[in-house]
Design a protein around this nucleic acid. Structure first.
Length: 591
RNA sequence: GGCCCUGUAGCUCAAUUGGUUAGAGUACCGGACUGUCGAUCCGGUGGUUGCGGGUUCGAGCCCCGUCGGGGUCGCCA
């Protein structure tokens, strides 16, 4: 038997017992006559000690132990004297007086020390993920991830959902994200695609009568990575039949409230607040606003129109917008140089400039203040509710640019000005997304969510008259500024589906080719249905309070989608390619 | 594909802004030490400054290219 207890469980009550522990050497403190070792496993650390008078051979062996050696010890649990209790350890009231020591596995010198205050750079951590995964921060994430998925499964089970698996090897569809492809050996020249999500299969399950489905599903998208995006990620995929939007939202409300309570001890109102897309876009400039703080956007169009500042008035004349926000008590905190930096920052979002005003007792102070007379200055102050000491920022541009620039600025200022508690949570629904948007590049309507999204019942008539105004029965769950879930009610009515396809300029033949197996499923008695998918990795990231998704994935990939641990992706043998009827044709600069 | 940051000892960082033999802490190796818990003290090993070019009397530092890592815009139905 390798152990009778773990390294995290022994307390004062255990004093006097003989125990056997196994684990990793976390620290060693060698005093020649007495040697202390902190023994670690995933449950905690226990101090073990070796006395010269107890057993000089064992003590000699103990002195040679180094970081990450794996050992087994047997000895007696001893209560520590009061002045030697270590309050930093849960096991700090006891220690093990070792009688026998066995070296189970000698470690090579590790590439970095786990308890080091300065974290090694991420490249090294990913290369040596085995060592990295021993760090408490990653262990916390893995444990929380497990607790989260268990809670999710339990919750949906209680609600009558069935966990059903869907294929990993599927059919490629050109819409949406780029597919990861898998060549078929038995069908030369043909490829499977890895699922971007189990979307169509879960709709087919609804048609088949499995009216409450859930799955913790791995999804794959070959798009560029971000701090919160990996090429393979995990969704909590949910679909329900005979439901309206409110039914889906209520089920998820219940999940979120329970999860925040059980995993974070946070009491959240039983029903998460709901906002319309139009509302949050106007007030926050984003469809995923971080509502842990205010600092809302305000429209200054009417004031800008008549002011003396040409950039503003001309923007309004040409159909653009002037909007602004107030950074509370930031006038002194942001120097001209820092504001220049913010100007460059909003430039990334297309803003050609960033107007600013420092608010003082008499009005506005700014290089462009002279273009605003007393009444215009007061109008701006009163519209924004600004106080002396505040700093006002404005962007004048087409609507989409004012939204993108100001929402990014808002997030940045909120963080820099510490306007919220980073450990708090703000969860909300955004509903009534537009069904379609007009893509200027391809000069056509494209689906905002996907082509199977049901239009808002009040807007069906608009499909033929004003498609851009049609709202969808789709919804996002937004947490701390992240899209944490997204879903919709699907079309189960062939006539409306046809209308949407027509709008998207998808011909019947093409629809049959691309989504034929879904349309086929919808043909034989499709119940009204809808669903949602939660981003598991993002949720765990948020629950841990981390700012990147890699720290909640055991073996993540880098920004270039490589796995530094295994070396994937890699070239394969010629005979493997031949078997798959594949010839590699590298671009010239790589060959 | 664009923009920005980054790469110096096993690790975390420094190097007076182009100037002597590239330093410190930690890890590692050796020694001392019987109550430490970031143990302490003494000594030692350890470097093609990511790689390749260039400018210069002289490059860790400047320039060009390239590779890796990170952030972000585009992209992600």
């Amino acid at each position: 038997m390798y152990r009778t207890n773990t390294c995290g469980e022994l307390r004062r009550d255990h004093a006097g017992q003989e125990v056997t522990l196994s684990g990793w050497v976390d620290k060693y403190r060698d005093h020649a006559g007495i040697v202390f070792i902190d023994l670690r496993d995933r449950y905690g650390k226990t101090q073990i000690k070796f006395n010269l008078e107890d057993n000089s051979d064992t003590q000699k062996l103990a002195r040679g132990l180094r970081y990450e050696d794996v050992i087994q010890v047997t000895g007696d649990v001893v209560a520590r004297p009061d002045d030697m209790i270590n309050p930093k350890l849960s096991t700090g009231e006891i220690e093990i007086r070792v009688k026998t020591l066995k070296l189970l596995s000698k470690s090579a010198t590790p590439p970095f020390v786990i308890d080091q205050a300065d974290l090694p750079n991420e490249e090294l951590r990913l290369k040596h993920r085995v060592v990295d995964l021993r760090r408490p921060e990653l262990q916390k994430a893995m444990i929380l991830r497990h607790q989260f998925t268990k809670l999710v499964r339990d919750y949906f089970d209680e609600q009558g959902f069935l966990d059903i698996e869907t294929p990993i090897l599927g059919k490629s569809s050109p819409e949406g994200a780029r597919d990861y492809l898998v060549p078929s050996r038995v069908h030369p020249g043909c490829f499977y695609a890895l699922p971007q999500s189990p979307q169509i299969f879960k709709q087919l399950l609804m048609c088949a009568g499995y009216d409450r489905y859930m799955q913790i599903a791995r999804c794959f998208r070959d798009e560029d990575l971000r701090a919160d995006r990996q090429p393979e990620f995990t969704q909590i995929d949910v679909e329900m039949a005979f439901v309206e939007q409110d039914d889906v939202l209520s089920v998820i409300d219940g999940l979120i409230v329970r999860m925040l309570k059980e995993l974070k001890g946070i009491d959240y109102p039983a029903k998460l607040p709901r906002y319309t897309y139009a509302d949050v876009m106007e007030r926050f400039g984003s469809d995923k606003p971080d509502m842990r703080f205010g600092m809302e956007l305000h429209d200054l169009g009417d004031i800008a129109k008549t002011c003396g500042f040409g950039v503003f008035s001309k923007t309004i004349e040409s159909g653009g917008r002037v909007r602004g926000l107030v950074a509370p008590q930031a006038a002194e905190k942001y120097s001209r140089k820092m504001i220049d930096e913010l100007t460059a920052f909003v430039g990334d979002y297309g803003a050609k400039g960033l107007a600013f005003f420092r608010v003082n007792e008499n009005g506005l102070d700014s290089p462009i203040a002279k273009f605003f007379d007393e009444s215009h200055q007061q109008a701006i102050i009163s519209r924004l509710g600004a106080q002396p000491g505040d700093l006002i920022f404005c962007v004048a541009d087409k609507q989409s640019v004012t939204s993108a620039a100001l929402s990014a600025l808002r997030n940045r200022l909120g963080r820099e000005l510490k306007l919220y508690d980073p450990s708090s949570f703000s969860c909300l629904w955004v509903v009534d997304f537009p069904l379609l948007h007009f893509d200027a590049e391809s000069q056509r309507w494209v689906a905002e969510h996907h082509p199977f999204c049901y239009p808002h019942p009040d807007d069906v008539a608009l499909l033929t008259t004003d498609p851009g105004k049609v709202r969808a029965q789709s919804y996002d769950l937004v947490v701390n500024g992240y899209e944490a879930a997204s879903g919709s009610i699907r079309i189960h009515d062939a006539k409306i589906q046809q209308q949407v396809f027509d709008l998207l300029n998808i011909k019947a033949e093409e629809a049959e080719l691309r989504f034929g197996f879904l349309l086929e499923g919808l043909r034989y008695g499709a119940p009204p249905h809808g669903g949602i998918a939660l981003g598991l990795d993002r949720w765990v990231m948020l629950l841990c309070g981390y700012d990147n998704i890699r720290d909640v994935i055991a073996f993540p990939k880098t920004q270039k989608a490589s796995d530094l641990l295994s070396g994937a992706p890699s070239e394969v043998d010629e005979h493997q390619l031949k078997e798959l009827s594949i010839k590699v044709d590298l671009p010239e600069e790589l060959s």
